[in-house]
Design a protein around this nucleic acid. Structure first.
Lengths: 225, 225
DNA sequence: TAGATTGTTAATCGATTAACAATC
DNA sequence: TAGATTGTTAATCGATTAACAATC
C-alpha cells in the first residue's frame, strides 16, 4: 500500500514548475518584443508590455521572470536580451528539424508556412501513405514513402513529428514515429494518442477551439433580442 | 468609491457559469459517444467514458451535467441522448454558415476539411484580396473579392468569419468583418485583434502550441543523459 | 535624490479531485 | 433487494491578481 520512496513528481525537481499558461504566453511576448526591436524601441517596461498585450502587469513580470532576465526600474527590460532569453527558453534559438506525416491540405498548409522559421521549426521532410503523392514536392518539401520514416529519422537525427493524417491512421502513425525514435509529436488529429510516457505529445484540436467559439456565439446571439 | 449597483458579472446571470475547459472537452465526449453509438453501445457509464478518455470520473460527471442529461446508476448515460444534448449545447445541431478570408494554404486546408460538417460548420464562401485567386474555387468553395464581404454577409445571413490571412492584414480584415455584421471570428493569426466587446473572438495560435511542445521536448532531451 | 517600476509574497479566484449520501 | 454508480458538496490544488517593500 505504501510505496518505498514517495517521490512526489519526477526525481530532481530543482526547476521551479512553470505554468503551461506562461509558456503559452511566451510567443506573444516574443512577437511583441521583436516588433518593438524592429521599431527601434530597445527598452520596454513590463507595464508597457502588459498594456499592449492586455495582460495584467503582475502576470507579465511573473511570466518574464522564467527567462531569468531582470528589468531595471525606470528603464525596463532590454528587448534584445529578452528576445534571446525567450528563444533560449523555448529552444527556438536552434532550429528543430521535424517530419510531417500526411500530405493533405493541412499538411500542405503547415509545410508551406514560412513563419515556422521564426519559431525555430524546420520541416525537413514529408511522408505519406499514398504513392501518388510520394516523389513529388509539397510546398518545396520532398514527399517520401511512409515506410522510410525510421531510416530517415536515424539518418537526419530528427526528434519531432507532426501528424496531419486522417484520424483513423493517427495511432498507427504515432506508433511508427515512436519506433523511429521520435521524441515529440504535434498531433493535429482529434485522437487521444497512446504513447510511452517519455514521449511528449501536444494536440492541436480544431474542434475544441470551434466548440468554444460556437458556444460563445450562441450565447451572444441568444440574448440579443 | 462604491458603485451604485454592484453587478458582479453581466446582468442576468441565471446561467451557471461553465468553465472554458469543460466546453473544450465536450467535443471529445461527442466523438467518443458517436463512435460508441456507431458500435452499438447505446448506454455508457460516466466511469467508462472517463476511462476511455483518461479524464477523472468526477470531471466527466460534472462536464456532462451541463447538458442537463441525467445518467441512471447501473445503466449509465444514453449515448444518443447525450450526443443530441451536446450538439444542442454547442449549437452544432444546426449548421453555422461561415466566411473564410484568406485563400492561402491554411485557408485551403480549412475550406477542404470535410470534418467540419460534423461540428456544424459550413464554409459557404471564401474571400481574398488577391485578384488572381478570385473567381476560382478553393476546395470547391467560390472565392470572392474581398470588398464583397459586407454585401454577401447581409445576403447570406452569415455570422461567423474565419481569418487565415497574413498577420499584417488581420486587423483590417477583422474591421471589415465587424462592419459587415459578423458576430464571431475565428482568428488563425497570432494578432491580438481589437474588436467591439459584443464580438466573440477565438484565437487558434499555432505558435502557442508549438511553444509548449518545444519546451517539453527540451525538458525531455536534457536529462536523458 | 525622488518617483516610477520592479520582484515577490500574500490574497483571491477558479478549476479539479475526493468523498459520500442519494438513487436506480 | 444489494451494489454499482450517480449528483453534488467539500477539500485540494494551481493560477491569477493585489499589495508592497526593495530598487534603480
Amino acid at each position: 500500500m505504501d510505496r518505498p520512496s514517495d517521490t512526489p513528481r519526477g526525481q530532481q525537481d530543482s526547476r521551479p514548475r512553470v505554468p503551461r499558461a506562461t509558456v503559452v504566453r511566451l510567443p506573444q511576448y516574443l512577437r511583441f518584443l521583436r516588433d518593438a526591436e524592429a521599431a527601434e524601441n530597445h527598452y520596454l517596461s513590463g507595464a508597457r508590455i502588459a498594456a499592449a498585450l492586455k495582460i495584467e502587469p503582475a502576470q507579465v513580470r511573473k511570466d518574464l521572470a522564467v527567462t531569468g532576465i531582470a528589468s531595471r526600474p525606470g528603464v525596463g527590460f532590454c528587448a534584445s536580451e529578452l528576445i534571446y532569453a525567450i528563444e533560449l527558453y523555448l529552444g527556438w534559438n536552434n532550429t528543430t528539424d521535424a517530419f510531417l506525416v500526411g500530405a493533405g491540405h493541412l499538411g500542405a498548409a503547415l509545410a508551406g508556412y514560412a513563419g515556422f522559421q521564426r519559431y525555430g521549426l524546420n520541416i525537413v521532410a514529408v511522408f505519406d501513405l499514398d504513392d501518388h503523392k510520394v516523389g513529388r514536392k509539397l510546398c518545396g518539401k520532398p514527399v517520401h514513402p511512409f515506410d522510410q520514416i525510421a531510416a530517415k529519422a536515424q539518418e537526419m537525427h530528427v526528434h519531432m513529428g507532426i501528424i496531419t493524417v486522417p484520424s483513423g491512421a493517427a495511432q498507427d502513425v504515432a506508433d511508427v514515429l515512436v519506433l523511429a525514435g521520435i521524441r515529440a509529436i504535434w498531433n493535429f488529429t482529434p485522437v487521444e494518442l497512446d504513447v510511452p510516457p517519455n514521449i511528449v505529445v501536444e494536440k492541436t484540436d480544431l474542434a475544441a477551439s470551434l466548440a468554444v467559439l460556437s458556444r460563445r456565439l450562441a450565447d451572444a446571439l441568444r440574448p440579443s433580442r
